[in-house]
């Protein structure tokens, strides 16, 4: 081996060492800052994985986060409540969170909000699991969920810095900025303002494309329900109201979801087509998201119905 090659190898080794040290040190600093967040999507996830111990827990996507008025529920039920719903997340995200919580303690009730098309295959659901990267190595369920993220994210997560990729802005805004939505004060509830009557609200695009079920999601739902039942925790599955009748395409997904829930003997409260909400533009921010007024009404409806399913509620 020539002297030049040796010199290069030594230089590369020193550089590799410097990179590893920088990665480890940078990762530790970011982890420290990350854990100081007081609000936002990561705060909620951290609360679920690390220290949440509420009696009533709510899970799901934005429909859970924005529709379940957790402070109102806590006041009415006189129980501790937390809304773990997170925008854009699916069952793939909920499953590891619920497993982590149930391995720590036994809550009284879990409310899992599912959309009719929850079992649809959507590649973005896998990309959005990147929210779990900062918790790599927290436990084996989280690690196996991280392995579902495309583009070999699990391999890249070996880097301590990569685990906090694109989070620096969130960290500073949710630590030193004003509180962004989901916080301890709001018990995870993240209401949205504005209604569809003003004409400025957003209209969500209807689902298009062929019907494609996601085997992982079906598997996760079955495992999730079985696990909650095995831990003897009460479970209620809900679908929150929509402003108008859902698209025909969703019928296939709805049918499959209903079949599965019936088969697994789960309490399912379906308000997707509720007459109390249908066509009421004052209650909706867009076609599928209730505004704060609608969320309060929905929460009261849910609280009234809870006693039908569970004696102590």
């Amino acid at each position: 081996m020539s002297k030049k090659v040796k010199t290069l190898l030594v230089k590369l080794l020193v550089l590799a060492f410097a990179l590893i040290v920088a990665d480890l040190a940078g990762g530790q600093v970011l982890k420290y800052l990350f854990n100081k967040q007081r609000s936002g999507k990561y705060f909620t996830t951290s609360h679920a994985i690390k220290d949440g111990k509420e009696q009533v827990l709510i899970f799901g996507n934005s429909h859970a986060a924005q529709h379940f008025d957790a402070p109102l529920m806590a006041k009415t039920l006189s129980k501790s409540v937390f809304n773990f719903g997170n925008q854009g997340q699916s069952l793939l995200y909920t499953y590891p969170l619920v497993k982590t919580i149930l391995s720590r303690y036994q809550p009284e009730l879990i409310i899992l909000n599912l959309d009719y098309n929850e079992l649809r295959y959507d590649p973005t659901d896998y990309e959005r699991l990147a929210i779990l990267l900062p918790y790599y190595h927290a436990n084996s369920v989280i690690d196996s969920t991280i392995s579902l993220i495309p583009d070999r994210a699990a391999l890249k997560a070996k880097s301590h810095l990569y685990r906090f990729n694109s989070t620096l802005g969130y960290i500073f805004l949710n630590t030193y900025g004003h509180s962004y939505g989901k916080s301890m004060k709001s018990l995870g509830y993240d209401p949205v303002e504005g209604d569809m009557c003003t004409g400025t609200a957003n209209h969500e695009e209807a689902d298009r494309g062929k019907i494609a079920f996601d085997k992982n999601k079906i598997d996760y739902l079955i495992k999730l329900i079985s696990y909650i039942q095995s831990k003897q925790v009460k479970l209620l599955i809900t679908t929150t109201p929509l402003i108008e009748a859902h698209e025909n395409e969703k019928n296939d997904y709805k049918e499959k979801l209903t079949q599965l829930l019936t088969k697994m003997n789960v309490n399912y409260l379906d308000y997707g087509s509720s007459a109390a909400f249908k066509g009421k533009c004052k209650l909706f921010h867009d076609t599928s998201h209730l505004n704060a007024t609608g969320a309060a009404l929905w929460t009261k409806t849910l609280l009234n119905d809870l006693s039908k399913y569970f004696d102590q509620f």
Binding site: A22, A153, N165, L168
Partner: peptide, 20 residues
């Protein structure tokens, strides 16, 4: 030079979009 290379690598890991 090493600080410079390490800093660039850290910026890539922290702010890069790795969707290939």
């Amino acid at each position: 030079r090493y600080c410079y290379y390490t800093l660039i690598a850290m910026i890539i890991m922290l702010f890069g979009v790795f969707s290939e």
